[in-house]
Simulated assay, not measured.
Amino acid sequence: MNKKTLIADTHDIFEAFIINGLHHNYCIYCQFPFNDHLVNQHNYGEHFDIEFNDGYRYHQ
């Protein structure tokens, strides 16, 4: 995984990162709290690291 971190400041940008597969190569930091509904909308596969501004970290 690349050492650079992508910053998602909106749900739309977060979804664009996931749809384009960027979560496989970069860590993603979300500038909003963890949202169970948003996270469960996608299939992430393996090797991803997503952190939310409330400290919740979703990774594999």
Rank of each mutant, 00 (worst) to 15 (best):
N35A: 05
E46H: 03
K4V: 09
F14Q: 02
Y26A: 06
F34C: 11
I50H: 08
H11F: 08
Q41W: 01
A16M: 05
G21M: 15
H23N: 11
H47P: 09
F34T: 15
F32Q: 01
C30T: 00
H42L: 01
N25C: 03
V39W: 03
E46S: 14
V39A: 00
F14C: 04
D12S: 08
N53Y: 10
Y58P: 05
L6A: 06
E15H: 13
R57C: 13
F32L: 05
D54S: 01
N25K: 14
E46V: 05
G55T: 00
F34V: 13
K4F: 12
I7L: 15
D12T: 15
N35Y: 08
I50K: 03
M1S: 14
Y29N: 11
L38S: 09
C27F: 06
N35F: 04
Y56D: 03
D36L: 06
Y56C: 12
I50F: 02
L6Y: 08
H24L: 09
K3E: 13
F17T: 07
N25L: 12
H42Q: 02
N40P: 06
H59S: 05
Y29S: 11
I28N: 07
H47V: 02
H11V: 15
H47K: 10
I19D: 10
N43Y: 08
I50S: 06
D9P: 00
F32I: 09
D9V: 09
I13A: 08
T5R: 13
H23L: 09
M1W: 07
L22K: 08
I28T: 11
G45T: 10
A16S: 13
F48G: 02
E15N: 10
Y44Q: 07
G55D: 05
I28D: 12
H23C: 04
P33N: 07
N2Q: 12
G21F: 10
E51H: 10
C30S: 00
N25D: 06
K3D: 15
T10C: 05
R57S: 11
N25S: 01
P33V: 13
D54W: 12
F48H: 10
H59K: 06
F48K: 10
K3L: 14
N2K: 09
D12R: 12
H59T: 13
A16Y: 04
N53E: 04
A16N: 09
D49T: 03
H42P: 04
F17K: 08
N2I: 00
F52S: 02
F14E: 01
L22Y: 12
N2S: 13
I50C: 03
I13V: 15
H23K: 01
A8S: 02
Y58F: 15
I13G: 00
D36S: 08
T5I: 15
D36N: 13
D36H: 14
F17H: 09
F17Q: 03
T10R: 11
C30E: 05
I19V: 11
I19M: 13
T5D: 08
N35V: 08
N43A: 06
A16V: 14
A16F: 07
F48Q: 14
E51M: 05
E51P: 04
N40E: 04
G55Y: 00
E46M: 01
Y56G: 04
H24D: 06
H11M: 05
L22F: 12
H11A: 06
T10W: 07
N40I: 01
Y26S: 10
E15M: 11
F48L: 14
A8K: 07
I19Q: 06
N2C: 12
F14M: 02
